[in-house]
Design a binder for these strands. Structure first.
Ligand code: MG
Length: 373
DNA sequence: GCGCCTCCACTTTTTCGACCTCTCCGG
DNA sequence: CCCGGAGAGGTCGAAAAAGTGGAGGCG
């Protein structure tokens, strides 16, 4: 049996920071995570303002995504968190499109981006401030995208991911993408030989070559995707980042005639992920203390890593996330979920009052949440 | 003004998130 | 048998992932 204490302790080993240990102790005593000395967060208003120019977007669809100088200071994310959320939501892509003005006839554009619902604009700004360069742009009717595509921004991105590597299969995409960035940086993409090299790389990144590029470069052999070694969670902040991206906190009230009230309550924690990363999910299970189960629907590519056992959720998952908080609006769903867990723990869900309370929580979280801000 | 770069809006595809249901187990 | 819970089977739709291209600026 793995205790909460054990999980936290093991998690702490990765951190190697006395102040963090102290903070955890503090949290255990008074249950509060407030306070300025929280070691994983630093104030970097100056950096942020220097690098994030004010913009007025021409498109009327765009909401203003600039901050004013009077805005509250932004807290920077930790490097491990940034890698974790990138393993979840990041995209390393190499654009190749026709361009008459260019000598090769083709325009090469490496991009690192993260797309999120506009409700998480604050998180995107934190990402922007973390790398210091780049921009946030309107993506769709309800989504925004933080993008890094200038050479300066790209260098900052490469510097980070070399020092704090991804642990999912996305690492293979990153490694190939980085080569394209180097070619781009050295202006080799402006020669035919360099262009061909970029195309070969692109052929093995993400979705590979689309038909139009296959046709245009029929003779180019794609690069071999680098092997990614067995993942090791580098730091609990990585988990916080990954869960912020892919985690799913679920409260379900189900009709059940067996139950005295006619309903049963189910608490779940899910992490879905493409089946190519099943080993990563198994590693996460170990890391979180075990007890999760795996499910893959027939003919589907998504493996779902699930916790459905109440005491495991209550004793392993909740304490972990409380110790290494997730970021973004999902935190509110986590908080509501925890409230439901409190009720279930004291068997309140077996009383009409408790059940009603849980129903109210359930209706207001996730897709039911009203204020998206 | 050529050649190239950056910013930004926008599109396309799918991997997520979130939700639903049934069976079976055990105290 | 009663009651409560856990695992395992799914589905749905959009927030992710991934990608395109043009305007405009600059050496
Ligand atoms: Mg993902």
């Amino acid at each position: 049996m793995v205790t909460t204490q054990k999980i936290i302790e093991r998690a702490m080993e990765y951190r190697g920071s006395k102040s963090v240990l102290y903070t955890v102790k503090e949290q255990r005593v008074d249950g509060s995570w407030q306070g300025d000395e929280r070691p994983c967060l630093r104030y970097t208003l100056m950096d942020f303002e220097r690098n994030y120019q004010l913009r007025v977007l021409s498109n009327p669809r765009s909401r203003h995504i600039h901050t004013k100088s009077t805005s509250i200071p932004l807290q920077t994310l930790t490097p491990f968190f940034v890698t974790g959320i990138t393993d979840a939501e990041g995209c390393f892509s190499v654009g190749i499109s026709k361009h008459k003005q260019l000598r090769t006839g083709w325009c090469v554009k490496p991009v690192f981006s993260i797309t999120l619902h506009e409700r998480d604009e604050a998180l995107l700004k934190q990402l922007l401030s973390f790398f210091g360069k780049g921009g946030i742009f309107r993506h769709g009717p309800t989504t925004l995208q933080v993008r890094f595509e200038s050479k300066n921004a790209l260098w900052a991105v490469v510097k980070h991911f070399d020092k704090y590597p991804l642990i999912s299969q996305k690492q293979a995409d990153y490694l190939l993408w980085k080569k394209a960035v180097e070619l781009f940086s050295d202006k080799e993409h402006l020669t035919l030989a360099g262009l061909f090299e970029v195309v070969a790389l692109r052929a093995s990144i993400n979705w590979g070559l689309p038909p139009r590029l296959r046709k245009a470069f029929p003779l180019i052999a794609s690069k071999i995707r680098p092997e990614v070694k067995k993942p090791v969670v580098p730091n609990p902040e990585w988990m916080a980042g990954f869960i912020s991206g892919e985690g799913c906190f679920i409260v379900e009230i189900l009709e059940n005639k067996e139950m005295r009230l006619g309903y049963s309550v189910k608490i779940k924690f899910n992490i879905p992920q493409h089946k190519r990363d099943i080993i990563l999910l198994q590693v996460l299970n170990e890391y979180l203390g075990g007890g999760g189960n795996f499910h893959q629907a027939k003919n589907r590519d998504v493996m779902e890593f699930r916790f459905q056992d109440f005491s495991i959720i209550d004793e392993q998952i909740v304490p972990f996330i409380r110790s290494f908080p997730i970021q973004g609006m999902k935190i509110h769903d986590f908080n509501d979920w925890c409230q439901a867990i409190d009720i279930v723990r004291r068997k309140g869900h077996l009383t009409p009052e408790g059940l009603a309370e849980i129903q109210k929580l359930e209706e207001g979280m996730n897709t039911g949440r009203k204020e998206k801000k």
